[in-house]
């Protein structure tokens, strides 16, 4: 496990780190964090249990157990990553293990939203580029520098144009990825909406 965990706050413009590749499509949130670890009232101790069952099965050879990945922080995945349950415990576990950004072919909707809400930017790249990173001979030591302003990822002699939803990119650059404060600002509009909605009136119990 890594040293003391500090959650991200404020603007996120740049992420530098070593890549860790996890190969496979449709990796679901039950695999990222099995249900028995959901018995908790805070997220604090989830980091060590990330991919618990997959890791046990692979007896030390799972990417999250390899020594050379100990300090990795940019997760490289294939398609439909994070499908299944809506548990935010999944990105929380990844984040607490040390993941700061994810690059993949595609992400499941709820997982993507959960990542954005807790400050993990998720980028997409075409299959070919993902393979290029995953098959990189020096994979062990592949460091990427992600620049959110220009949606670019650079390594020593590689460069990728990352895709990310424009709304997410803006939120990270402005530091408003934690949506609560933006939502709270429209308090009057919320009250108006509450008073206007037809069904609120006929559901007074």
């Amino acid at each position: 496990m890594k040293s003391e965990f500090t959650p991200p706050i404020g603007t996120i413009t740049q992420i530098k780190g070593q890549c860790i590749s996890l190969i496979g499509n449709d990796i679901d949130t039950d695999r990222i964090i099995p249900a028995r670890f959901l018995k908790c009232v805070n997220f604090d101790s989830l980091g060590e249990s990330v991919f618990e069952d997959d890791r046990k099965t692979l007896k030390g050879s799972h990417p999250f157990d390899l020594k050379e990945n100990k300090n990795a922080s940019i997760l490289i995945v294939n398609s439909n990553f994070g499908c299944g349950s809506s548990r935010e415990h999944a990105p929380q576990a990844l984040m607490r293990w040390g993941i700061k950004a994810i690059i993949g072919e595609s992400f499941a909707d709820i997982f993507y939203n959960n990542c954005i809400a807790i400050g993990i930017p998720c980028f997409t790249l075409p299959n070919k580029s993902i393979k290029e990173i995953q098959n990189n001979k020096d994979n062990k030591f592949l460091f990427l520098e992600i620049d959110l302003k220009n949606s670019l990822a650079k390594a020593k002699d590689l460069s990728f144009n990352l895709e990310i939803k424009e709304s997410s990119r803006k939120m990270f650059l402005s530091g408003e990825w934690d949506a609560t404060s933006a939502l709270l600002m429209n308090n009057n509009l919320i009250e108006n909406k509450f008073n206007q909605l037809p069904y609120i009136k006929f559901n007074i119990h």
Partner: peptide
């Protein structure tokens, strides 16, 4: 939704 959105 995820837990952060439950909060929202």
């Amino acid at each position: 939704i995820g837990t952060s959105q439950v909060r929202d």
